[in-house]
Amino acid sequence: MKIKFTLNGTLIEKDVPVNKRAIDFLRDDLGILSIKEGCGEGECGACTILVNGKNVHSCLMLAVELDGKEVITVEGLKDNVIQEAYVEAGAIQCGFCTPGFIISTKALLNETLNPTPEEIKEALEGNLCRCTGYVKIEKAVKLAAKMYKGSDSND
């Protein structure tokens, strides 16, 4: 089936098999390698992408459902603020879960730059990290919010 959508700002027109998952299409056909497959069933969040500004699992979505949508992955973020905040806070170890966390962080910060600790926890509850624990990741989100607001304080 022919689909047409924007991926990280670029218009894409492709013919895709109807049984192909969005994750396989984006990774294998379009080379978007930030998207990781962890569990393949919506438990881990490593495959998270932004579709029309909302974070969703690309493993639980058909490629044909991307038709007409605006898709953003880590490759297409307009700046590196969240990535830098994760590095600064030491919120990365093996890095496999990181793109998913960054996308969920972006989805949260699109809604608010003053997230409460509860809002941060809720925004990240669908992403699993088996290396770091979550304290540093939560700090990274707070830090990214601050960096977006232009403040350089770092408590």
Partner: peptide, 12 residues
């Protein structure tokens, strides 16, 4: 509703 799934599940 806030206990259902995760943000990604609730968005779909």
């Amino acid at each position: 509703v806030k206990t259902i799934g995760s943000p990604m599940i609730r968005n779909r």
